[in-house]
Design a protein around this nucleic acid. Structure first.
Lengths: 140, 140
DNA sequence: CTGTGTGCAAAGCTTTTGCACTACT
DNA sequence: AGTAGTGCAAAAGCTTTGCACACAG
C-alpha cells in the first residue's frame, strides 16, 4: 500500500489536496468531499448535482476544471466506457471494471482479481501507460 | 474462424451487406468500401472525409446513421477509448487494443495474444457481453 | 498589488433527430 | 402507391474557453 497517496485513508480533503499539490479552495474541497467519500464512479453531471445539493452551488465550469485538475494530479482517474460521458473514478490505483451496458453502472474489479497468462509485446517505440480490462455485462 | 460472417474475406461489399440483412444502397456500399477495405479504426469524421474524397459525397447524418446500423448488425464494432470520439473497428470479432495516448492511434491485438489466468466472478444477475483489454501506451 | 481561482455565458465538437425528397418495390 | 433510405439543417448533449470579478498572499 501507499499510505501517503491514497484517498482510501479518509483524511480531511484539504490535506489530501495539499498533499497532491492542489491549493485547497472551498469549491475544490466540496468537490473532493463528494468524489473521495468512498470508491465510486461519477460523471461530471452527477458531481455537479451532488455538490449543488449538499451545499452552496459550484458552477459547471468549475466542476469540469476541477475534475480535470484532480485527474492531472493523480487524485482521480478517468474511465472511458460510455461514448456519451466520462466517469471519474475515486480509486486512482490501477484496477479494472465491470460495465453494465443496460444500466450504465460501473463497478470496480480489484487489480488482483485479474491476472494474465499471456500478453502481447508492445508496439515498437512505446511504453506501457496502463492495462485496463473492461468486462461489459448485461443485466439478466 | 467463421468463413460466413467475416469481412476479412474481401467479398463484394454489397454481398457482405446483404448477408448481414442490410439493404445495399449506394451510400452504404460506399461507406462499406471505406470501412471494410482492411482491418482499421476510423472515427465517423474520418469515414466522412474518406467517402467524400473518393466519390460523390455522402451526408454527415447518413454516415453516422450507417455506422450505427453496421454496428447493430454486427458488421462493425465501436471502440471507446477516447473521450472525444468513437472509433469504428472493421474487425467485429472479439479482440483487444493498443491505444497510443500521444498519437491517438489504435492498434489491434488478436484475441489469442491475450490470455487470462484469473478473472473475477460476474456480478449477481448479469451475463458477459464482452471482455476487452485496452493497453494504453506512450510513444517513447 | 499581484496572481490564482471562480463563475457565467458563449462557443466547440461530436452525435442525434425531424422532415421533406428520392428511389426503389 | 407505398415503403425504406437519404440529405440537410437544426437540435441536443457534453466539455472547453474567455473574460471579468473575487479572494488570498
Amino acid at each position: 500500500m501507499d499510505p501517503s497517496g491514497s484517498n482510501s485513508r479518509m483524511q480531511p480533503p484539504a490535506e489530501t489536496l495539499a498533499r497532491h499539490g492542489i491549493s485547497p479552495t472551498a469549491q475544490r474541497i466540496r468537490i473532493a468531499d463528494v468524489m473521495l467519500a468512498r470508491p465510486q464512479h461519477l460523471s461530471a453531471d452527477q458531481v455537479l448535482a451532488a455538490v449543488n445539493a449538499s451545499a452552496q452551488p459550484v458552477s459547471k465550469a468549475t466542476v469540469y476544471n476541477t475534475l480535470n485538475l484532480f485527474c492531472r494530479k493523480g487524485l482521480l482517474r478517468e474511465v472511458i466506457v460510455d461514448p456519451a460521458r466520462v466517469f471519474y473514478d475515486s480509486t486512482p490505483e490501477p484496477h479494472h471494471h465491470f460495465y453494465d451496458i443496460d444500466t450504465g453502472e460501473l463497478q470496480d474489479i480489484p487489480a488482483d482479481e485479474v491476472a494474465f497468462s499471456r500478453l502481447p509485446p508492445l508496439p515498437e517505440g512505446t511504453d506501457t501507460d496502463s492495462v485496463e480490462v473492461v468486462i461489459r455485462v448485461r443485466s439478466r
